[in-house]
Computed example of a mutant assay.
Amino acid sequence: MTASTGARLTTAAALDAFAAWAIRSTADRELSLTTASTLATLDRGGPQRLSDLAVREGVTQPSMTALVTRLERDGLATRGDDPTDRRAVIVTLTDAGREVLVSRRTRRATRLAALLDRLGDEDRAVVEAAAGALSRLTLTDPSRGES
């Protein structure tokens, strides 16, 4: 392993640890991670087949069916027929679902900003300088399901 590979692996491990910590420490107890992820997938990708959502979220179709039933009951998503396949179900994010996401994202950003305020000026400047690159990195990640 070269020094640059070792450095990249060290950086990747630090990012992984930070991501896991950030999720745990800023988690919104109102929504499970799977629920929040499903809503975010619908927000980014628009209406989707229930079966495709299950694959993207890494859950079984029966589990996704149960989740969508709860989302529908709570007014966060709707279920409709797929015009191209009468056997398939299309799931769509509602305005209320989008509002929940915006509120959740705002609370998480506020919590993270408060944590950034605890850093010294030099460390905060380093994190702020890396923010653009980290944003670009997330846009190139194929697991985001941008389809």
Rank of each mutant, 00 (worst) to 15 (best):
T5C: 01
L67H: 03
L33G: 12
T41Q: 08
A20V: 10
G97E: 02
D52G: 12
D82K: 09
G75M: 05
A20K: 09
L112W: 06
R87V: 02
V68Y: 04
V102A: 14
V100H: 02
R104S: 06
L101C: 06
A14L: 13
L101T: 06
S32Q: 04
G6I: 03
P83R: 15
A54V: 05
R118Y: 02
S51Y: 01
R87N: 11
L53S: 08
S135F: 12
A125M: 08
Q48R: 14
A96P: 00
T138I: 01
T78R: 13
D28C: 03
L9D: 11
R29I: 03
T69Q: 10
S63R: 14
M1G: 13
L71Y: 05
D28K: 01
L137Y: 11
A130P: 00
R44A: 11
L42S: 10
G97L: 04
L71E: 08
S25H: 14
D117W: 09
I90L: 12
S32A: 11
E72Y: 01
L76V: 01
G120F: 00
A130M: 14
L101H: 03
L39S: 07
L76W: 10
P62F: 09
L101V: 07
L116G: 12
R108T: 13
Q48A: 15
A125V: 03
V127H: 05
G97C: 06
D82A: 08
D52A: 15
T140A: 15
T65I: 00
G75A: 08
G80I: 04
G80E: 13
R98D: 14
A27H: 15
R56W: 04
A113D: 11
R49I: 03
W21C: 01
R56G: 02
R70C: 02
T65Q: 12
R86M: 04
A54P: 03
D85C: 06
D81T: 15
E99C: 02
A129K: 09
G132W: 07
A113V: 08
F18D: 06
A17P: 00
T34D: 12
V126F: 08
T78S: 11
S37L: 10
V55S: 09
D117P: 00
A13Y: 12
D81Q: 14
A20D: 15
R104M: 11
D81K: 11
T92Q: 13
R105D: 14
V127P: 07
D16N: 12
T10G: 12
G45H: 04
R105Q: 14
I23W: 03
L71N: 04
L134V: 09
A88S: 09
T106R: 12
A129I: 02
R105G: 13
G46H: 05
V68G: 00
R111I: 07
A109D: 10
G120R: 10
L116D: 15
S63Y: 05
E122V: 13
P47A: 14
T94W: 10
L15R: 10
L112G: 05
L39P: 04
T78M: 07
G145I: 03
V91G: 07
I90T: 14
A27Y: 01
M64H: 05
T65C: 01
R24C: 05
L67G: 01
T60Q: 11
V91C: 06
S63E: 09
R98Y: 01
S37Y: 06
R49F: 02
T140L: 13
